[in-house]
């Protein structure tokens, strides 16, 4: 019993809180792309998971090119920034291409068709990723299906090691996630409220036909938003390299898609503020689950279960999500 009390001392709780904040940052990056796309176009993008996978591998490639193993000090962060930019731009291009070539044809059709189409895109992209990984690793060993720990050693040395902040031992990558998460929240918020393009996006979410009648090229706005959403998915995928709960395989995106969906539904489909709030709540839930499952119960799936309980409770108490307004999407 004393052991239990010790593990729940203020230090452990504070550490969990900060880790939860880091997890929340990750969830924001994972989910904001989804919610932006859904809010504007009403498309539930199942290809998001494939974009995450590609982001992971592209990020790993960038790390091999730009960074060196265990780069110490500030010198390790510059290549990392380069990798983020590379991944963001690469995935943005891919996302825009998918929207321009495929999703665009289906705006008039029922939402189910768009779900199906993006699911098909996800399947094809994931298999393509597998083929390319196998091509680069020399074929028959099927590297794409087995965990690949090597990329995690590249990048800043503090990732994966504990940094002491005010007496608390925090993993370096958690601090980075908090930072990037905050940057993404601030960036998207400012983009939506302070730029002309953000105005177009908000107008389009409200009523896309009216916006088009007022002379806004709404189709180009759609493409840009899809691109930004995909780019954010890629950056999130790069972060997953250092997450101990995920292994780098081609299935990584499919695994990460579930919490992203939960965050989007809990926050309310299509509201960015709701997603941020839900990401924070879900992040704390997850880390609290980790704390419980490592100390009290011996049940590895507890964090995922807690997330899910969060989803079910939200759906029963407030079906449209924390900040969702009305039912969206039709059926």
């Amino acid at each position: 019993m004393t052991g239990l009390l010790l593990q729940f001392g203020p230090t452990a709780l504070l550490e969990t809180l900060i880790q939860g904040l880091g997890q929340a940052g990750l969830y924001v990056i994972l989910a904001s792309g989804l919610t932006l796309i859904f809010g504007l176009m009403g498309v539930l993008n199942f290809a998001h998971g494939a974009f995450i996978t590609i982001g992971t591998y592209l990020g790993a490639m960038g790390l091999f090119l730009l960074s060196s193993p265990n780069a110490a000090g500030v010198g390790g962060f510059l290549p990392l920034l380069g990798v983020f930019v590379l991944v963001f731009v690469g995935l943005m291009a891919l996302g825009s291409l998918v929207e321009f070539g495929l999703v665009r044809r289906l705006y008039g059709r029922p939402p189910i068709d768009q779900i199906l189409l993006t699911f098909g895109v996800a399947t094809v992209l994931q298999q393509l990723a597998e083929i390319f990984v196998n091509l680069f690793t020399g074929g028959t060993s099927n590297q794409a299906q087995t965990p690949w720990p090597e990329p995690a050693t590249y990048g800043p040395a503090v990732f994966g090691e504990n940094v002491t902040v005010a007496g608390l031992a925090i993993d370096g990558v958690v601090l980075m996630e908090i930072l990037v998460g905050a940057v993404v929240v601030a960036g998207v918020y400012l983009f939506l409220t302070r730029t002309r393009y953000g105005l177009y996006i908000r107008a389009g979410s409200e009523d896309d036909e009216m916006a088009e009648a007022l002379g806004i090229d709404i189709r180009r706005v759609f493409t840009v938003v899809f691109g930004i959403g995909s780019g954010l998915a890629g950056v999130a995928g790069t972060f997953l390299i250092w997450q101990s709960t995920y292994d780098v395989t081609v299935a990584i995106g499919a695994q990460a898609l579930l919490p992203a969906f939960i965050v989007v539904v809990v926050g309310g489909l299509g509201t960015f503020t709701g997603t941020v709030v839900a990401a924070a709540v879900a992040g704390f839930f997850f880390e609290f689950g980790v704390l419980l499952s490592t100390n009290v119960f011996d049940f590895v799936s507890l964090p995922q279960m807690l997330l899910f309980i969060l989803l079910v409770v939200t759906l029963i108490v407030r079906p449209t999500g924390i900040l969702g307004e009305e039912e969206v999407g039709g059926h």
Binding site: L44, L315, P319, T320, E327, G330, H331
Partner: peptide, 16 residues
């Protein structure tokens, strides 16, 4: 809820 929610929730339960 609408079909979009239904798709997501069934997906979530299966993965859980």
């Amino acid at each position: 809820l609408t079909g979009v929610y239904f798709a997501m929730i069934t997906l979530g339960v299966a993965e859980l």
